[in-house]
């Protein structure tokens, strides 16, 4: 068999190009599949709106969440919590969240400090929960496929599949994940998936007397929560991480981290 230099180079080139083509190129997607791959399928994308101006720090949301989702009540873990921020005249910010705010904020002491009322320039409460990010860092790092994003945008954990390695707990920039003391797997806020999938609101939203927490479908332009997010001045936590959080805050202060 004879082979000229020209032929060899030609064939080598063709071979290199062929080897670099992914096989998925030849897979044909239906329009529905293509749509799903681009924008996420379905007509629902759950989003959350927190109005920090309305929160009084009663902590009923934390209590309701712990009971509803069977998070051990006295263990120092919680799916949602409320933080207190007290900014004083000297420019310092005092932050605490006793028991995650489960029993409310009944003392003027912030941590161990007693702050005289005349020193306070501003003080407020900030409820926190899983941001159900569009680009969840916690899901990217899971080595076994035990955590995932559903088509309606909620990040869930498969308790039968999680190996408890804790990578996701480290990866979450918001610190919302923790190790479940009973199931021995990673645990996080599910937006009360068992409730929202039945047409109810989350336990924390229902428990909030002041309407500081609201949940809605971001894909429905007539949803009151979506309308509020579109028309009000809202912010998200740690935007710079690129996780695209879907929990929006009204009245967020730069002291909140």
């Amino acid at each position: 068999m004879s082979c000229s230099r020209r032929d060899l180079l030609k064939k080598a080139m063709c071979g290199a190009v062929a080897a670099s083509l992914p096989l998925t190129m030849f897979r044909f997607l239906s329009p529905a599949q293509a749509q799903a791959a681009v924008a996420g399928s379905g007509k629902v994308r759950w989003g959350f709106l927190v109005d920090t101006r309305k929160c009084v720090g009663c902590g009923f949301c934390v209590k309701a969440c712990k009971m509803e989702n069977e998070v051990p009540y006295d263990a120092p873990v919680t799916r949602t919590w409320v933080e207190r921020y007290v900014v004083t005249r000297d420019g310092k910010t005092h932050i605490d969240s006793p028991l995650g705010g489960r029993d409310g904020f009944v003392s003027q002491k912030v941590g161990e400090e007693t702050i005289p009322p005349e020193e306070i320039t501003k003080a407020f409460f900030v409820p926190k929960l899983c941001n159900q990010c569009d680009n969840p860092a916690c899901v990217q790092v899971c080595p076994v496929g035990a955590t995932f994003q559903t088509n309606d945008g909620v990040v869930l954990i498969d308790r039968t599949w999680c190996i408890g390695c804790g990578y996701c707990i480290m990866a979450c920039p918001y610190g919302v994940r923790f190790f479940h003391p009973i199931y021995k797997v990673a645990e996080k806020c599910t937006f009360c998936y068992h409730r929202i999938s039945k047409g109810m609101v989350t336990a924390c939203v229902q428990a909030c007397p002041f309407g500081a927490r609201r949940i809605g479908n971001l894909k429905d332009p007539n949803d009151p929560v979506t309308r509020a997010i579109m028309t009000e001045r809202v912010a998200v936590l740690k935007d710079e991480y690129g996780t695209k959080p879907q929990v929006f805050y009204i009245g967020l202060d730069s002291n909140v981290r």
Binding site: M67, E68, N135, Q140, G145, T150, D158
Partner: peptide, 28 residues
């Protein structure tokens, strides 16, 4: 792969039903 791609949607489909099956405790 059930979600939008391998990175975010590689999981056991039955896990979603596991979460939906949890009983509601706060009934309103």
């Amino acid at each position: 792969i059930h979600g939008r791609n391998f990175t975010y949607g590689f999981y056991r489909l039955g896990a979603i039903d596991d979460w939906k099956a949890i009983p509601v405790k706060y009934r309103g």
